[in-house]
Design a protein around this nucleic acid. Structure first.
Lengths: 222, 222
DNA sequence: CAGCCCTCTTGAACACGTTCAAAAGCAGCG
DNA sequence: CGCTGCTTTTGAACGTGTTCAAGAGGGCTG
């Protein structure tokens, strides 16, 4: 029992130290030796708890996701408009991610590797992914938006994909305070909402259906 | 004169050897020492010509782009339909890229780093980027598609962005012969064409305008 | 207590990308 | 030919992420 507590303590000591050094000096310039030294353990010990340097950020990633989930949910109550809800959720992510933009960049580069367990599409990330898609489902279901029912089913996943796009943009965003990413959200969200509403229009209907079908077919793994 | 020729010979010997080893064993498993040994030069010499291991693929990237440009142009003549033209260009890219999918993955991971000169958005890549956008302009201009003139100006850049999306999908594509990427192109291109056509419709017009505006504003660096 | 086993910890060692001072080649000039 | 200056080439050395055999610590059983 006490052994377990001690172990958990060491683990969290290492990850905390790592995160501090990452934010202070950036991912690349922080060495495993420095992390171990600062935490007062040996290099080998860090590797006993975390299989790689990359792995060290997974814990951080999870924490950020949880933070976003709760903060975003709080923003959703008493907000009926679809565009309003979506915008709130996305801007909330930008707020939470802001302090980590410097080394977050390095992080998401690693995540871009399809082979990496850090990839948002990987099996290892499926729990976090499902949670995020669930949040998007709340955005849709709690709103007063009228939708083609076919689209309604797929929309949460589409919105999650859109969020990944925003993240990609954010990673490349070099503007002060990442304000261009905010601009992207502010202006693209109303557009998305209008497009979603158009999905019920007769002319647009077949196109909308085909989009849904395509996504559906592509989602099937084989 | 002869010095220059010899120098160029060494340079190309190194890059050729590197490409061979990359395709044979993958990027990660190919060491600089192995490349140098196989090419019959010293490690330091490889670094005299290429500033890093990453840099070694830039030459390859350029070659692939050139190959695509000429092959795609050949496919465009006598093909008036917009969707047809776009589909041909994208499938052509998939064909050319196919043999390098294995290590191409690793390549595009490096390219995902916004700081990297290999990023498609970087200044170093601007020449290649402009060329690709130029190809998309030919796709639009040579076709019989009727468009909102505002959209017509921006469309090539949008199509290039779409192509980057296809590449991203392809990198993550694990299906045999990357046939899912082909499916994506086959089915999304007609959709895009219909959307583009819809841009002239009254209901759609303001949305279309806003999209163009947004892209325009985001493209401004600051 | 002694012996055992499992968890945790260590630091030297390895393989890699990269750097750099030094040497080697080579052309032009006096 | 010897000297000078430039390009090209070398390989040892550095700093890094990562591995691993060895050991320390501490609880459990006989």
């Amino acid at each position: 029992m006490q052994r377990v507590a001690k172990s958990e303590e060491t683990r969290s000591l290492i990850v905390t130290t790592a995160m501090r050094l990452f934010t202070e000096n950036g991912y690349d310039r922080t060495t495993m030796r420095a992390i171990a030294a600062e935490a007062g353990v040996s290099v080998g010990n860090a590797y006993y708890y975390f299989s790689s340097k990359e792995q060290l950020i997974q814990g951080f990633y999870d924490e950020m996701a949880t933070q976003h989930l709760t903060a975003a949910r709080a923003l959703l109550t008493g907000r009926p408009g679809f565009a309003d809800r979506l915008k709130a959720v996305l801007l909330c992510w930008l707020d939470i991610a802001e302090p980590y933009h410097r080394f977050g960049t390095q992080f998401f580069v690693n995540a871009a590797d399809p082979e990496s367990p850090l990839s948002p599409f990987s099996d290892d990330s499926s729990a976090a992914r499902e949670a995020s898609i669930g949040l998007m489902r709340e955005v849709v279901d709690g709103s007063d938006v009228k939708l083609d029912p076919e689209l309604r089913d797929q929309l949460p996943e589409l919105l999650w994909l859109f969020q990944m796009g925003v993240v990609l943009f954010w990673v490349h965003d070099r503007s002060a305070g990442t304000k261009r990413s905010r601009l992207l959200v502010e202006r693209s969200v109303p557009l998305l909402a209008r497009l979603a509403a158009l999905s019920r229009l007769r002319v647009f209907r077949p196109v909308s259906r085909e989009i849904v079908d395509l996504i559906h077919d592509l989602a099937k793994r084989d």
